[in-house]
Write a protein that binds this DNA or RNA. Sequence first.
DNA 1: GTACTCAATGTTTTT
DNA 2: CATTGAGTAC
Length: 792
Amino acid sequence: MDYLTLKKQVLNKYFSRTNDMQKKAVFRINGAVLIVAGAGSGKTTVLCNRIANMLLFGNAYNSNTVRELSDDDVAFAQSFLAGEIDNFDAAERLSEIFGEDRVKPWNILAVTFTNKAAAELKERLENMGADVDGIWAATFHSACVRILRQDIEELGMGYKSNFTIYDTDDQLKVIKTVMKEHNISDKAVTPKAVQNLISRSKDKLITPDKFSTKGKNGSDDYQLSTAKTIYTDYQARLEAANALDFDDIIMLTVKLFAHCPDVLSHWQNRFRYIMVDEYQDTNAAQYKLVSLLAEGSGNLCVVGDEDQSIYRFRGATIENILSFEEQFGAEVIKLEQNYRSTATILKAANAVIANNTQHKDKNLWSDLGDGDKIRMDRFSTEQEEAMFITERILDGVKQGKKYADHVILYRNNAQSRTVETTLAKSGIPYKIIGGVRFYERKEIKDIIAYLCVLNNNYDEVRFGRIVNEPVRGIGAATLDELNRVVSGMGISYVQAMCESDSLPSLSRKAKVLVPLGETFSELSQHTDDISDGSLIDDILDRFGYREAMQRQGLEGEVRLENINELKSNMITFAKENEGAGLSEFLEQVALVSDMDSFEADDDKAVLMTMHSAKGLEFDTVFVVGAEENIFPGYRSQFDPMEIEEERRLAYVAITRAKRHLYFTCAKQRMLYGQTMRNKVSRFVVEIPSQYMAYDDHTAVTASAAARSAEQMKPRTSYLQQQQRSYHAEQREMEKRVENVSYAPGERVHHGVFGDGTVLSAKAMGGDWLLEIAFDDKGTKKVAAKFAKMTKI
DNA sequence: GTACTCAATGTTTTT
DNA sequence: CATTGAGTAC
């Protein structure tokens, strides 16, 4: 057999666990590649095998170079082909024999969506026998933090490499402080809205000076001008505190690359092969970052599925993936075989997502058989809904399933409560992902704040948090003065406290401040070694925190236990990351999410939001609260683009199920302390009825006799009626859209807002998205068909 | 400067 | 509903 044939056979055999399309992706390692990976199409497998191929064989598959092989080598290859040696054991030698231009691990950057995905990727690679030392597998945020830790000072701004990372809470505090200083009422502009504006601006790389104050109608907008003022000050404060928020992490890395060609070319040289997973959820800043890095080598492979883009609210733009092919001249590889779900589930998912306009046709298929129909069950209340799920889970377990095969998905965390209590009552073990997070507990945030101040003596927000926690007689007045001294003299909080004796404005409090400052100063010397966690004990003891907790009794005990858990997290971290100090630990804390701690192996039913479920799969999936105004949420009802986003979320939820999928809804439910009655979610109605089994439990009376009689006749009338009226409404709306068009300048009437003038009109999602300047109600965005606009 | 009470307020999703 | 915030009494 000639060399080239043998080589191909060996490589095909080595990657024999991938299908033809997947192989194409595995072997195409150079240039720009777009892998469109439908749900359950083995995306992670492809990523792993692709990297393994780079490391072991480089570009061998596509090369025509012929080599002389020794008889020994040929014999080895033959026995590998004969199945006598497995992949793991053969890897090293096969790589020696056939590898060409093998990629060095440190030349690879694999960007994943979560830290957990990054860890999994590394683990799977190790299990394949590849040498992964030096590979960067990380999220955008953690990769950028690593880059910034090294090079941020090159920016020549105020940032130093031991910068702190501010979370959304810290951000909000800074914003509120700034607003207070400017006497901006939080009624006119809410801090949250400003935070959102700032965050969305940073996603688009818009710095405060470029922030436009022009409203939609082209003139200055009060809210935007105010936001600009706040943004400017906010950014200055963060810089002074040597702090970065989440969005800065990306934005400043882009800025660094754009302003420092040396730094950029260093990293371009380092990362010659770049892969980005979940590309559909990247934002403009991340796009820019990736483009800059990939400019060097041109080897950029992105993986994603536009139908699973669910993070628009935080700046993700689906356009990144939709236009990737064109922008980078990429080869497109589509993975359309689904290995996860039954054909019924897939067809339902396809039918739902087909209603989106921002969607490329694709043909996801499965050969796992039709399986069960998808169920839709309707109840009187959310308690009955939860009871039903409990019964189904117990039933499933009786049939030999594990608790962990069941997942309950909801749109927002508030919905978890009813299900949770019901599960607890029936003794089903469960775990909740998300909700109140460990790192958001007060005591944990306090201790983290202490650690932050020790790590970075300039950290304003964290200092403010703990300067009087536990209470030590330092109130708002003293803190204000400290802030003034720190920003005025350019010294740190710790220095300011130590020298408060000689500062007239602070000397009154020197008795408290000096010892406090000295403790901070002393403990700041010991932040390199965190391996035994004693730093946390020191904080507890020397700042009086433990004592304060002990005075609180039982609640304090629980809190101290939580702090202990933080301590053991710290010790574990130090063990796993040799040479890492306090700042590395704090960074990990800031960037790690709850999802990262999700372990599939303990046998518990799982409760989480649909967002958190991305990337996971379960035998049985319950989607609770499948109702209009919940899912899709009432906030998205009038924006066609928002509805499309929700529909993608539905697509994600449906495709999590391997075999069984239930939608449930309630005739009336209590949410946020209010009773509401909602129609069945449009997403359920969009599933063709041949894939569905409806059951309306609200028709059942209390009497058992009546119940069994009731079961005899189909209880589908309500849902069928819903479906009929929905489709009729759709046709009606389509007609209306077809017949009517809008243009700027036209006068229109709205049922609630009254009369107004059209500022802009865009055909979108089968509807008209109008911006209207109402005569009395200001400027609003309105979807014409939903709002039932009429022309006047 | 602190600790407590009561009222208002705002409700999505998260690296 | 649950949390935060303002206001009040010490």
